[in-house]
């Protein structure tokens, strides 16, 4: 699974072409501005991580990108088409696996459920769900129920469900924030492998700088509310990464400190601003 060349993705879009375009995206809740005009272009086939401090509106951004929430200003387009509802070629993995899976369906049925919208037969649905579950290493647990599995395994089910849907882009909202450190590292590597193997585009939101740098081709650094893009960092760490070796490289350390400084600086200017406002 590790050495398969990246298959070309999607209809008219080649690698490195714009897939998801975000223009001047703003979101306010009752006059309270959460997102303050975000511009970014996600390329087909890339792994982009969105990193920012807690409460920076990262989750709100993801909801706007997927069409679950309508933005107040600006627009999101996928292959030139405006996103108003979740598009057919997009899947999402949510943070809270215990609430995002259906406890009344078996692991297999949970993963096969999205395929019901694809208008294919039951046998084919099962086959595709099995393939996705094999991809995440769960083929021996398909007849269990989500609540019989550990947290990490439940999140694998959620990832398999997204993969079975055969999307060209997967949004992940803090997907590893609720599992222990070892499981987290395993799931990160699993996600990298799956991405390489299936050639999908991944947009992952995290508050963890190390995770963002380790996973991403490009890291989008966000500031505090109202959130804007502070920096966009290209990682150049190559397609094959290792939890120990990659994190020990100089490039990794440099990238990490660059992202860290961006977030810190934004913190400091923000608090300086509020002190001035009070004074």
């Amino acid at each position: 699974m590790t050495t398969t060349p990246t298959p070309t993705v999607g209809k008219a879009t080649g690698p490195n072409d714009a897939l998801l375009v975000v223009e001047n995206l703003g979101k306010s809740f009752g006059g309270h501005e959460v997102l303050g005009g975000i511009n970014v272009t996600v390329r087909a086939g890339e792994f982009m991580c969105i990193v920012g401090p807690s409460g920076a509106g990262k989750t709100t951004l993801l909801q706007c990108l997927s069409g679950l929430t309508a933005p107040t200003t600006g627009a999101v387009t996928l292959r030139g088409e405006r996103v108003t509802e979740p598009p057919a070629e997009m899947a999402i993995v949510f943070q809270d696996y215990s609430r995002s899976l259906m406890p009344w369906l078996s692991v297999l049925d949970n993963v096969a459920l999205p395929l019901r919208s694809a208008k294919i037969g039951k046998a084919e649905r099962t086959e595709k769900a099995m393939a996705a579950l094999t991809e995440v290493g769960l083929k021996d647990h398909v007849h269990k129920y989500p609540w019989q599995l550990s947290g990490g395994m439940q999140q694998r089910v959620a990832i398999a469900r997204a993969l079975a849907y055969a999307p060209s882009i997967v949004l992940m909202d803090e997907p590893f924030a609720s599992v222990d450190a070892q499981t987290r590292a395993d799931l990160e590597d699993l996600t990298l492998n799956v991405k390489r193997h299936l050639g999908i585009t991944i947009l992952l939101v995290t508050h963890d700088i190390d995770e963002a740098v380790y996973l991403a081709d490009r890291v989008l650094v966000m500031g505090k509310k109202p959130t804007v893009v502070v920096d966009l960092v290209e990682t150049h760490l190559g397609p094959h990464r290792d939890q120990i070796a990659t994190k020990a490289t100089r490039e990794f350390a440099e990238l990490r400190s660059r992202v860290y400084k961006q977030i810190r600086r934004d913190d400091l200017t923000n608090s300086a601003g509020s002190i001035a406002a009070v004074g």
């Binding site: 979740p86 019901r116 919208s117």
Partner: peptide, 15 residues
């Protein structure tokens, strides 16, 4: 969250 899940995966009203 499940209401979002069924929206993301575009399930029909009947489903």
């Amino acid at each position: 969250l499940l209401k979002w899940v069924v929206r993301v995966f575009r399930l029909s009203p009947l489903d």
